[in-house]
Structures are given as structure tokens and as C-alpha cells.
Nucleic acid binder design. Sequence first.
DNA 1: ACACAAAACCGACTGCCTGTCGGTATTTGT
DNA 2: ACAAATACCGACAGGCAGTCGGTTTTGTGT
Lengths: 131, 131
Amino acid sequence: MILGDLEKRVLQFLWETSEADAKQVHVALTKRRGGALNTIQSTLDRLFKKDLLTRQKQGHAYYYRARVGKEELVAQLIQNVTCDFISEGEDSLIAAFSSFSAGLDDDKLSQLEKLIQQQRQLRSQEVSDAD
Amino acid sequence: MILGDLEKRVLQFLWETSEADAKQVHVALTKRRGGALNTIQSTLDRLFKKDLLTRQKQGHAYYYRARVGKEELVAQLIQNVTCDFISEGEDSLIAAFSSFSAGLDDDKLSQLEKLIQQQRQLRSQEVSDAD
DNA sequence: ACACAAAACCGACTGCCTGTCGGTATTTGT
DNA sequence: ACAAATACCGACAGGCAGTCGGTTTTGTGT
């Protein structure tokens, strides 16, 4: 999945606003970059067709919402770039992580550890839920 | 940085082989996909211009090497996709990790923890080296 | 029901990137 | 110097994002 600059900005905006129609997005983004309303409409449509947005008509206009959260999307994009290079089941996925973590400071590393713990806890919960 | 399919395959091959000229790459990749030697040459050239390969002339031909390791590149690509969405210093980088880790099994989580430890150790070493 | 305004929709065009490769210029070993 | 191998140049196709004009559809108020 490839996302253009405008598409990313639109997504960002929708994550902040949760819901908006083309006009609102246009007003919000136009302050920084100009451009026609139509351009925004096309972009929203393309994101919709990519299944990244949902829409619902209210009055004249569609109101768009992000279908996936920012973190979820980023995670998916990470998956994409890693899967291109790493054969399934290969541990390089972890190695990639390793390289990535080299760019993190100590605080972030600690946070990561915490998140791993959380992840584990989340799972054991799910398991007992399932039982 | 966007990489096409062929570019990725070429990189993969060079990571496995460490060094090769266009002909060798062509032979290796052509078995799966056909195509002219020229195509490979162009691709190698584009990767070279993207600073992903180094080259050195030996006899008639350039011999190419990957300038960056697989993990390093993957890490860079991960950075790219995350930075597009996450403002600097924002903790969403970590959150993205979190989403990503949701797709990992327990083993991988443990490996991740180990890698974090390693990373820490590596750093304390570097610090004492610097002193 | 009708007319009007607002928005959707369609289609075109541009620019960029990768894959593809033919043809020509260079280089190298003999 | 010659022939072969290779690099280099330039072109074209296909795909995708950004852009937007023009037309059609659709709500809404009267």
C-alpha cells in the first residue's frame, strides 16, 4: 500500500477530528497548501476505495471516518515493508526490529519493554476470557 | 524511498551473494522471471543512484555490493513509514510498535526483549569505550 | 413538486517512478 | 587495432498520486 503526501495529511486530520466531510478537510488542509476542494474529494474517494476510510451520508455530503487507527495503519505499513524482504517465519523480522531499536533512546527502550509486558498480559487475559 | 519488485529481488540476491555483476544477477533472477540483461543493468544503476549499492569495476563489468544490510534497510524503511505519520518525539512511534507486536507470538516477544537487553548492553559498552 | 445549491461523480491531464529494452558509445583483453 | 563484453543513453509503457474542470445527481427549502 502506497500513500501519497496528501493522503497522509488527510488521514492525520481524520484521526484528529474523527469525522469530517470534504469541505471541512479542505478548509483544514488548504490553509497550509491551497488546492481545490475537488482534489480533496478525489483523495477522500481514493482513501475510501483503499478501505482506509468509511463514509456515511449526512445531508448533502459524505462524512468520512478513518477505518483504522493510526497505530494500526503504521503497524500494517511496517508489516508491508518487512514482509517484502523477510521470508515467512524468518527471524529477520526480529532482526529488523533490532536495527530499528538502535534508533531509540533508553526511555523508548524501556517503554518498549513495558509494552511487551502489556502485550503478554493482554494475551493471558484473552485466553482466560476464552475459557 | 520506494522500491519496486525487481529492485527488491536484486537486493535480496546481493545480500545472499555479497558481490555480483549484472550478468550474474541476470542469470540468477532470469530463471524465475525472464527479462533482458539490460533491465537488470538499469535496475542496478538505479539502486546505485539511490545509494543502496556500491560498485567497483573488475575487468569489463561493475561488481555491485549492497551498501546497507538487509536489517539496516528494513529499519530505514520502517523509519520512513513511521516518520510520515508520527511527529518527532511523539510516543506514537512506540504505539506503532505496540500494534506491530500484536502480530508476534510469545517466542518473538521474548526475542524482542532479549534484543532490547542487548541493545542496552551495546550502549553501555559504547559509553565506556568513549571514556 | 420544483428550483436551486451543494456535493458527488467522471474523466482528463501532469508528474513521478519502475520495468523494459534497443541502439550506440566505451572499455578491455588479446 | 580488433572484437567482444559491457556501460550508457534514451525511449516507451504502466501504474499511481495530485490536480481540477465540467456534468450529473441529490438534498432541501419553499
